[in-house]
Simulated assay, not measured.
Amino acid sequence: MKSVFRDYIDGIHAMLPLLPGAVPFGMIAGAVAAEAGFGPAAGIGQSVIIYAGTAQLAATQLVAEAAPALVVVLTGLVVNLRFAMYSASLAPHFIGLSFRRRALLAYLMTDQSYALTILRHGADETVTAITKARFYLGGAIAMWVVWLGATATGFMLGSRIPPSWSLDFFVPLSFLALLVPGIRDRATAIAAITGAIVAVAASGLVFNLGLFAGAACGIAAGYIVEARRGKKDDIR
């Protein structure tokens, strides 16, 4: 029994350094919902139903601008396409788990929970699927609780959050905390640099497609470097 709780606790401990970055992000999402005229059920409830920070912000702004429902839904799907890649990457690690448990893992998926699980257990084939799931759930549930609390706080404060706090500055910092530990060799470093440059250069594209362009170019650059290194090793 102790080992079971240990897996959950390890997940929580791994997530702890990333939780502070989610607080200002969540408060922004809640404040934007309040400013858009959402009621408490919609403003706070979207964090339970959608549970996707960037998609929530985009959807809220579109609703406030009276955009068609189809546009709102499609925008949310486009923004969250990266989770399809995350799911495909994690699926082999959770083979054998019940559909109900896998559905819970999917619902709680965030950039943080995905990255921590891959960094912790991605290359370790000796760890069982249930152990990985417990680790994942420990961190993911902690993030979910913090996110709900932050969005509820932001919603209640609404426009009273002064711009001078610059809460949006903490959002990229939380992602940098995930990125840096994952840069372990030349391929991942070039992938990160390429992705960042392309994403900034293409930031003006509609539907946040600059992010996808950066991700695609970063992955391609990393793959090319890795492939060339493999060929050199074969020649040797």
Rank of each mutant, 00 (worst) to 15 (best):
A31I: 07
A36G: 03
V72I: 13
L176R: 02
F38K: 06
K232P: 08
A115I: 15
M85C: 02
S98D: 04
I193L: 13
P20W: 02
A202K: 01
D111L: 08
A213C: 13
R186Y: 08
G30A: 06
S3L: 15
V225E: 09
A33Q: 00
A123Q: 14
A42Y: 08
F170W: 13
G230H: 12
A42W: 08
A133S: 12
P92A: 04
M27P: 01
A58K: 03
A123N: 12
A133W: 12
W165M: 10
G182T: 11
A41P: 04
F169W: 14
E35Y: 00
N80V: 04
P17M: 09
V71R: 05
L209K: 10
L74G: 02
K132E: 06
L62R: 00
L167T: 12
I12T: 09
A192S: 14
W165R: 14
V71H: 00
Y51K: 02
P92M: 01
A150V: 06
L57Q: 06
V225W: 08
P162Q: 09
G182E: 13
S166Q: 14
L104Q: 07
G138K: 12
A58H: 03
L16W: 13
G45I: 06
L105R: 11
A140S: 15
R184M: 10
G53L: 07
I197H: 03
G182R: 10
P172I: 06
F207T: 13
A142V: 00
W144N: 09
T131W: 13
V73L: 15
A123P: 07
L137K: 01
G218R: 07
A123D: 15
D234P: 08
L104K: 04
S164F: 09
G195K: 01
L209Q: 11
A22N: 09
L211P: 06
T126A: 14
M156E: 12
F94G: 07
L97V: 10
I197T: 00
A42K: 09
V180Q: 11
Y107F: 15
I193T: 15
G218P: 10
G139L: 12
A150L: 11
A88W: 07
V198N: 00
I95W: 07
V145N: 02
I44C: 05
I141T: 08
I224Q: 05
A91E: 12
C217G: 04
P40H: 04
I50K: 03
T128P: 12
A67F: 03
V32E: 05
V225C: 10
G158D: 01
V206H: 08
L137S: 08
R160G: 08
G154N: 01
I12W: 10
S89D: 05
